[in-house]
Design a protein around this nucleic acid. Structure first.
Lengths: 108, 108
DNA sequence: TTGACATAGTACCTTTTGGTATCATATAAA
DNA sequence: TTTATATGATACCAAAAGGTACTATGTCAA
């Protein structure tokens, strides 16, 4: 049912890629926009974006001569599904989640 | 507050290491026990276990001439904490979590 | 104490990874 | 239509990753 999380885990294994995801969570960015945030070359960023795309963490649309990168949660779902198995060993977390949901309720 | 998840993400990026964690979730295992489950040499398994230990995914205790590996969730917590940031973009998950907690309640 | 067993440690090999530099192509703007 | 800009595509490089083989050490058992 849940797809292979390998590409997703691979995508998340690099700190630069994780940082890119945080940036993209705030707003879509062109490749140039992303490059401006880091101290590596465009080529390196391009490779990171490709790996994020392969892990279904982002989607890309062409806009004129720009390529706009957009956060996509499908790949992250595959990774989280893998994690879900371990929930049974981790009661501590249930308390925090319960609270998170209570808070969510209060906002409605 | 939450520690650097890098070693944790690194530990989870390999499919053999993830499979080892699943095995260890069922029962503690010596290195030899783990080796028996996979088709790679002891040396390779030893390296995987070291990386899992560095990511705080497992702890190891010496028992006679054996080294017993035990699932440890601290490292996984660091990784999950990183994920928590993205919960806000993922309403779909909240429904499933709510249900998980309801089920938990029913078991008490 | 001696032999078998479980693991540690090292050297070595191949592939992948993260990175750079360079050149080519497509598009927007003067 | 030039020219500057945004990206694509290659080739190349050093280091890390995943693996093997071999040797050394510590511990249990006969």
């Amino acid at each position: 049912m849940s797809s292979d999380p390998q590409e997703g885990f691979r995508a998340l294994s690099d700190p630069t890629r994780r940082a890119i995801l945080i940036h993209l969570s705030r707003h879509d960015m062109s490749i140039g926009d992303v490059v401006a945030e880091f101290d590596v070359t465009r080529g390196a960023i391009k490779k990171h974006l490709l790996i994020l795309e392969q892990g279904d963490m982002i989607s890309v649309r062409t806009q004129g001569r720009e390529r706009i990168n957009h956060l996509e949660l499908h790949g992250m779902k595959a990774v989280r599904d893998w994690f879900a198995y371990f929930d049974q060993f981790w009661d501590e977390r249930l308390g925090a989640l319960k609270q998170a949901i209570e808070n969510k309720k209060d906002n409605h």
